[in-house]
Amino acid sequence: NQASVVANQLIPINTALTLAMMRSEVVTPVGIPAEDIPRLVSMQVNRAVPLGTTLMPDMVKGYA
């Protein structure tokens, strides 16, 4: 099963992502692949992401 990127904390809108904000977890539906975590660092979210939410490509500016 593919691990996805999950929010490790509440991430406010327009926040630049850091490693501490993300974790890898096997979830359904599948979100951004966990191997993309290094690429996500310093990218901004375009909405508030609650703790435990799977990051989807449309939630991260410049990812999709």
Rank of each mutant, 00 (worst) to 15 (best):
M22C: 03
P33K: 07
V27M: 11
T15I: 05
T53F: 10
A48W: 09
S42E: 13
M43V: 05
V26S: 07
M59W: 14
S42I: 03
I32H: 00
L17E: 01
S42G: 15
M43A: 05
N1L: 13
I32A: 02
P12I: 09
A16H: 09
G52L: 04
A3T: 09
A20V: 10
I32N: 00
N1S: 13
E25R: 05
A16P: 10
P38E: 11
D36S: 11
L55P: 01
S24A: 14
V60I: 08
P33E: 04
M56S: 15
A3F: 14
G31Q: 03
Q44Y: 14
P50D: 12
V5T: 11
V49F: 02
S42K: 09
E35P: 07
G62P: 10
D36P: 00
T15H: 09
N14C: 03
Y63W: 15
Q9V: 05
T53R: 10
L40R: 00
A20R: 09
M59S: 07
V30E: 06
N46K: 10
V26C: 04
A7W: 01
M21W: 03
A16V: 14
G31F: 01
Y63L: 06
M56W: 07
A48M: 13
D58N: 14
M21T: 04
N14E: 09
N14P: 01
V6C: 02
K61V: 08
N14R: 06
N46M: 14
P57T: 10
L40G: 01
M22V: 11
T54V: 11
M56H: 07
R23V: 09
G31Y: 02
I11G: 01
M56P: 02
G62W: 08
M21A: 05
V49Y: 02
N8T: 15
P50R: 11
A3M: 06
M59T: 07
I37E: 04
V27E: 03
Q44I: 13
T54E: 01
Y63M: 09
S24L: 09
L17K: 00
P12R: 09
Q9M: 09
N1H: 14
M59F: 14
V27F: 03
P38S: 09
I11K: 00
P33C: 03
A7P: 02
V26N: 10
A7K: 01
K61M: 09
Q2H: 14
R23D: 14
A20I: 14
V6Y: 02
P50S: 14
I32C: 02
S42Y: 05
M59G: 03
V45N: 03
V26Y: 12
P57G: 12
A3V: 10
P12Q: 11
V41S: 06
V27Q: 08
M22R: 00
V6A: 04
I13K: 10
V41Q: 07
V27K: 13
Q2T: 07
V27A: 05
V49I: 12
V5S: 03
M43D: 04
Q9L: 10
R39T: 08
L17C: 02
I32D: 00
G31L: 00
A7Q: 00
V6L: 07
I13A: 08
T18Q: 09
V41R: 09
M59V: 08
L40D: 00
R47V: 09
T53W: 14
S4R: 02
L10C: 04
I11V: 12
T54W: 02
N1I: 15
Q44K: 09
G31S: 02
T28E: 09
A48I: 09
L10V: 05
T54N: 02
V30C: 03
E35V: 10
P33Y: 14
V30F: 15
P57R: 15
Q44A: 11
P50V: 06
S24G: 09
L55M: 12
N46F: 10
T18V: 06
V41K: 07
A16N: 08
Q44S: 12
A16D: 05
I11H: 00
L19F: 13
